[in-house]
Amino acid sequence: MTNFKPRGFYFKFYSFLPIMVLFISVLNEFDLNYLKLKYFSFNFPFILIFFFTLKDFKNFDYLLVFLAGLVNDTVVGLPLGISSLSYILICIATSYLRNITIRPNPIKDWFYFLLVIGLINSINYSILTLFFSYDLLLLSYLVNIFFTFILYMFFAYLFKYYLKGLND
């Protein structure tokens, strides 16, 4: 495993990597949509935010998550504040889970994640259709929720490696 000098540049860079990846992913819309797979899309920021806020990662500032939401809205073309609200609701859900959990279990976290993204996407869909009269495909949302849920474990595995590297 790579060794970092504490307080060195590389250590700082490494410890701020998740928040940087979050900003890159919202600016870049990293979701492999250009592969043109008809029924494939996932929400990478949801996975990232859920994982790192659940772990109470110290460099994952809620304000920065909020700002990432604003950036995402601007890039995607949604009304400002929608994604910020979604991201902050994930933070609240993970904070609640942290408070009530004594012994963390990855499988329970995984299904809790499904519940959270289902709820947040429902709120998102309702706001956009009811208050902003957007025409949206419900199927796209369902596909997105499904693949985000499926890919959570894969990314969680990668993120655990990252955290291990940081702790070592």
Partner: peptide, 21 residues
């Protein structure tokens, strides 16, 4: 490390959504 509580950020988000409408 957090500068704002989540409740504050939720209110700010809702405020921005209302304003952007």
């Amino acid at each position: 490390q957090q500068k704002f509580s989540l409740l504050t950020l939720v209110f700010i988000s809702i405020f921005i959504i209302v304003l952007s409408s």
